[in-house]
């Protein structure tokens, strides 16, 4: 696989949210606005990138039997770093993401990439894979957050698009499921057009 392909596959073809359906809890939970979605996406990208690098660096030292617990400890350490940094410098974002920041640990995208990619590939490839997958995840969260914000409160990134209240239901829980359902249908259609001719 070429380097470019490793990097770009996370955007559409193997998008972690729309195609692989991994890490759905933060996807649905924090995307009440585009800003929250982007913040969560970037935090996850950082953890994913760092854990991919470390796992790929020490893959030959970890005994096969304890590899999953080792990955979890590596991931949890980086999540703690993100948690403390965000609390110090972005307290507002920290408050609105709430419990979903510590829960990055159990985001299956990260453990999934460590197990499926970083433990078998070189450091450079793992960096590209981590960045691509992470940005694909961030992209999905931002799109979902932006759509819900526009439909629900008539704004995007806090800037008003149209006057009026919008349909509040899209900011609430049911809207998350419904908007994501339609987005997945759309990405299936796009993928079919682009890749299976």
């Amino acid at each position: 696989m070429s380097k470019l392909k490793i990097f770009t596959k996370g955007f559409l073809k193997e998008n972690p949210v729309f195609v692989l359906l991994l890490g759905m809890c933060p996807v649905l939970g924090v995307t009440t606005s585009a800003e929250n979605g982007l913040g969560m996406g970037l935090a996850t990208t950082f953890v994913l990138l760092m854990s991919n690098i470390v796992v790929s660096l020490i893959k030959s030292f970890i005994p096969d039997k304890v590899r999953i617990p080792s990955y979890i400890v590596i991931i949890a350490s980086f999540v703690t770093i993100v948690e403390l940094t965000m609390q110090a410098f972005l307290p507002e974002l920290f408050d609105s993401l709430g419990i979903f920041i510590p829960l990055i640990v159990v985001n299956c995208v990260i453990l999934g990439r460590a197990e499926a990619f970083a433990s078998k590939n070189s450091v450079l490839d793992s960096i590209l894979d981590g960045l691509g997958m992470g940005l694909g995840f961030a992209l999905a969260l931002t799109i979902l957050g932006a759509l819900r914000e526009i439909l629900g409160s008539g704004a995007i990134f806090g800037i008003n698009v149209y006057s009026g209240d919008g349909a509040l239901v899209f900011v609430l829980a049911p809207g998350a499921f419904i908007v994501l359902g339609y987005l997945i249908a759309l990405s299936n259609k796009l993928n079919k057009k682009l890749y299976n001719k």
């Binding site: 359906l21 049911p174 419904i178 994501l180 359902g181 339609y182 997945i184 249908a185 299936n188």
Partner: peptide
Amino acid sequence: VPISLVVAGL
């Protein structure tokens, strides 16, 4: 998946 998500939304 899409229709399942819409059902979950309802």
